[in-house]
Simulated scan of single mutants.
Amino acid sequence: MGVVIRRAGESDRADVVRLLDEAFQDDPVSSWVFPEAEYRRRRHGALMEGFLDLALSLGHVDVTEDGSAVALWWSVPAGEDDDAEEGPARLRAAVDPDNARIEEIARLTGEAHPTDRPHQYLHMIGVSPGRQGEGLGTALIGAVLERCDREGAHAYLEASNSRSRALYERLGFRFTGSTVDLPDGPRLWPMWREPEPFVTDGGGTG
């Protein structure tokens, strides 16, 4: 049986934030942003909600019907981002004003983000810890990549570990050549995907 995916909205806010908070609570990047474990447990959800707000305003959010996996996508146009300077500071102010690392990671990833072509940006994908390894994340990504191929659109993301990087490579993403190195923290691998020839169920190309 295939994975049923639907578009999430405001009514899903609490469930999506809870899932992202659970999925990324011990992630190396989250641990870098919030080094102290108890403080991270208290403030991490606010950062996830901030990311959800960005996805709802700049793109869309896909969730599996059973609520066990979610993907946050941004639709990024070509050209320089007019919000590149102020956006990270606003995110920090909204989530945790005393935490400079929120602004720092937003700026570093923003500087690495391609601006020459429009694309779909997979900002985050989270799977409930008890459901990881079932292919839910691949199904969520694949649904958007199929549309990208059909429309001739590009896609972009940052892999946060070697395991996810290998998965994304299988889906057609390629490392851009320059890592994002968080100061005294983990490394991110920006990855870009060219659209692939779209194959219809009848075997032709679209």
Rank of each mutant, 00 (worst) to 15 (best):
V3A: 07
V3S: 06
V3K: 07
V3C: 03
V4D: 08
V4S: 13
V4N: 08
V4T: 14
I5N: 10
R6F: 01
R7Y: 00
R7S: 06
R7K: 06
R7L: 04
A8W: 02
G9A: 06
G9E: 07
E10I: 00
E10L: 08
S11F: 04
S11H: 13
D12F: 02
D12Q: 03
D12C: 04
D12W: 00
D12G: 04
R13C: 03
A14D: 08
A14F: 00
A14G: 02
D15N: 09
D15G: 07
D15A: 12
V16F: 01
V17R: 02
R18P: 00
R18Y: 00
R18A: 14
L19A: 12
L19T: 12
L20Y: 02
D21P: 00
D21G: 09
D21F: 01
D21N: 12
E22Q: 09
E22M: 05
E22W: 01
A23L: 04
A23N: 06
F24T: 10
F24L: 09
F24V: 06
F24H: 08
Q25I: 09
Q25K: 12
Q25R: 14
D26I: 06
D27M: 08
D27Q: 10
D27R: 15
P28E: 12
P28M: 11
V29R: 07
V29F: 03
V29H: 05
V29W: 02
S30R: 11
S30M: 12
S30T: 13
S31T: 13
S31W: 01
S31A: 14
S31N: 13
W32H: 05
W32A: 05
W32E: 04
V33A: 08
F34K: 03
F34Q: 02
P35K: 12
P35F: 08
E36A: 13
E36V: 10
A37Y: 04
A37G: 05
A37T: 10
A37P: 06
E38G: 08
Y39F: 06
Y39D: 15
Y39A: 15
Y39P: 01
Y39T: 15
Y39N: 15
R40K: 14
R40T: 05
R41S: 06
R41H: 08
R41W: 03
R41I: 00
R42M: 07
H44S: 12
G45S: 14
A46Y: 01
L47A: 11
M48K: 15
M48I: 03
M48S: 11
E49N: 14
E49K: 13
F51W: 08
F51L: 13
L52A: 02
D53A: 11
D53N: 14
D53L: 10
D53M: 07
L54R: 15
L54N: 13
A55P: 00
A55C: 04
A55E: 04
L56D: 03
L56C: 05
S57H: 10
L58C: 12
L58M: 15
L58G: 11
L58R: 15
